[in-house]
Nucleic acid binder design. Sequence first.
DNA 1: CTCATGGTTCGACGCTAATCGAACCATCCC
DNA 2: GGGATGGTTCGATTAGCGTCGAACCATGAG
Lengths: 221, 221
Amino acid sequence: MREGPEIARIAALVADPARSAMLLALMDGRALTATELASVGGITRQTASSHLARLVEREVLVVEAQGRHRYFRLAGSHVGALLEALMVFSSDAVPPLRTGPRDLSLRKARICYDHLAGEMGVMLYDRMLEEGWLGRDLDLTDKGWARLADLGLQHGDLPASNRPLCRACLDWSQRRHHLAGRLGKAVLDRVLALSWARHLPASRVIVFHPEGERRFGEWLR
Amino acid sequence: MREGPEIARIAALVADPARSAMLLALMDGRALTATELASVGGITRQTASSHLARLVEREVLVVEAQGRHRYFRLAGSHVGALLEALMVFSSDAVPPLRTGPRDLSLRKARICYDHLAGEMGVMLYDRMLEEGWLGRDLDLTDKGWARLADLGLQHGDLPASNRPLCRACLDWSQRRHHLAGRLGKAVLDRVLALSWARHLPASRVIVFHPEGERRFGEWLR
DNA sequence: CTCATGGTTCGACGCTAATCGAACCATCCC
DNA sequence: GGGATGGTTCGATTAGCGTCGAACCATGAG
């Protein structure tokens, strides 16, 4: 391309129908896989792969590899701001996309390895960050320790190991982060021990009892 | 082009180096001619003409014909907002462009047909709008009439005619509007009659005397 | 009127970039 | 181990669009 203002190259990234459709689908902050994005863009996987590589290279998207999947999401709020500035002209809508399991109980709460996933897991993670229980690099603050004590969790319940204390894990259904690591396991264990929820046999479903869900939400308030 | 989100088509308008250079040059709100925009875009006039037609058609720019010139400017603040959202990624600078006469006195104040142009003329027009002397459709308000009386201008000094009372005229050097119409002529006549300024013989230059410039500014305060 | 200048239209050319088929690599599941 | 799925790389094709030369129209100056 002939040289010119930088903004032309950025605009060109959005100017392709397939790429812009992918970006719109990511506007709600979720993370989607390459195959899903190929679908919303109406193109094949190999074409999408090339588009996504360019978007990551220009730091419009960030990518997170997890197993054989690669999750893409917007690189920051400035990308959302750009898309919104464009939507002023066009009034495009963000297309709905169902992700993950159809089963409502699975979407609500389930086990991911050994920690809590689904809506409840994402809520746990979000609230801990919002309320300052976790610092920016996922370190547990004094306030965080205090609130864990309210739940009955002490330092002793979280023995040191190679595994990190707190880790962010991409949620299959929500496509946002939930809490993993030793603390993720400890919180789930505690929720089960308190009988706020139970683990449905022979499945990954976690069923919250109404009273347990209320208390869980209150603890996070 | 294959169908897809609207935002792709808007982004495509900015994605071209020549077009984005033109848009950047217009970011300060001035209006530039097609030939000038061709120059900042580094392209020929005929190419620029095609670009500008598309930008006007998509309502990114608006055009104002004046004599054999066509002045283009951004269609609104939402266009500026879009460009700024793009510049977050790139930190392009708005390129400087000298417009109009080199002669400083000509840039400062001059006659345009029969009314005041240049910095002083643009200031007059801007202040009248800011202070509510003029309404949105350039009608003279009660407040406006009162302040004109301070200058010694009565209704009788502005005889009715086919020519509109107030009109916006694009300023050659400033590339912004200044005050024209019967009122524009009347104000200039009055400024000259008060000896706040004089008309340099055999030229279009208006020279404000220091004291006159002070009083003029005070009147507009 | 004649000339100069600003601007547009038309047509042809050339280049860039999006696209997909095919082959390949990596991971998960059994 | 083998099969299935997610994802990438490579190469060839194709289509869209930016570009300018040439001709033309409109306005302003003398």
